[in-house]
Design a protein around this nucleic acid. Structure first.
Length: 198
DNA sequence: TATTGGATCGCC
DNA sequence: GCGATCCAATAG
């Protein structure tokens, strides 16, 4: 099968469905004629204005503005002062929702990822949201850019994931989120060694 | 203008 | 288990 870039239209769907559908797709990063890629093995959904775990739960702010502007754009932010997190915005304009990319299986450009990460353990290269941003040189400059453009995008390479191959779990690091903290909105590939927490 | 705490990571 | 490190969000 020919590699097929995921279109903007795809991201406009239901966030939980998009979060699951992104498992097995490939995140591709291009810069300075270099190409890096990894298979997505873990995601989390942040859904709507009432989700207390979401940055958008207290309305529009300068940081989360991109979440309100319609599907198919990257939302990149700094957490804990030192790590970036990569999300793709989903659903309709004015309904804030996004999918956090939490872990990848490194596929292309592994030597470059090793340099960018400063470690050489393949298992530790991209098994967390901050780690994969470091490995793929993703930072705030990409915030607000197209997820269907040329610098950073997701493509379908024909890798199929069955429903039984997907596990659901609580989201990570959202204990402050009241009744939303126990939503099983984290999705990952069963038995995958590149998932962040197991 | 000041304070608080976080969608994490890596080392102890 | 805990410190790093900075900036967004909120309070005053």
């Amino acid at each position: 099968m020919k590699y097929k870039k995921i279109t903007q239209n795809f991201y406009g769907g239901d966030t939980l469905k998009v979060a699951k559908a992104l498992l097995g797709k490939y995140l591709v990063r291009k810069y300075h004629s270099k190409k890096l890629a990894g298979r997505i093995v873990e995601t989390e959904a942040y859904v709507g204005p009432n989700d207390l775990a979401s940055h958008a739960s207290r309305g529009k702010t300068p940081r989360n503005l991109i979440m309100f502007n319609g599907a198919g754009y990257w939302y990149v932010y700094l957490v804990y002062g030192l790590n970036y997190c990569l999300n793709v915005v989903t659903e309709q304009k004015d309904y804030p929702a996004a999918v956090l990319i939490r872990a990848l299986e490194p596929i292309t450009g592994i030597e470059i990822m090793i340099k960018l990460r400063g470690i050489n353990d393949i298992n530790q290269l991209t098994n967390g949201p901050g780690k994969l941003c470091q490995a793929l040189r993703i930072n705030k400059k990409l915030n607000g850019t197209k997820a269907f453009g040329n610098e950073l995008y997701i493509e379908d390479r024909g890798y199929r994931v069955s429903g039984r191959g997907i596990k659901s779990a609580n989201r990570v690091g959202v204990d402050y989120a009241g009744k939303y903290k126990d939503k099983k909105w984290r999705f990952y590939l069963k038995d995958c060694q590149f998932v962040s927490l197991r």
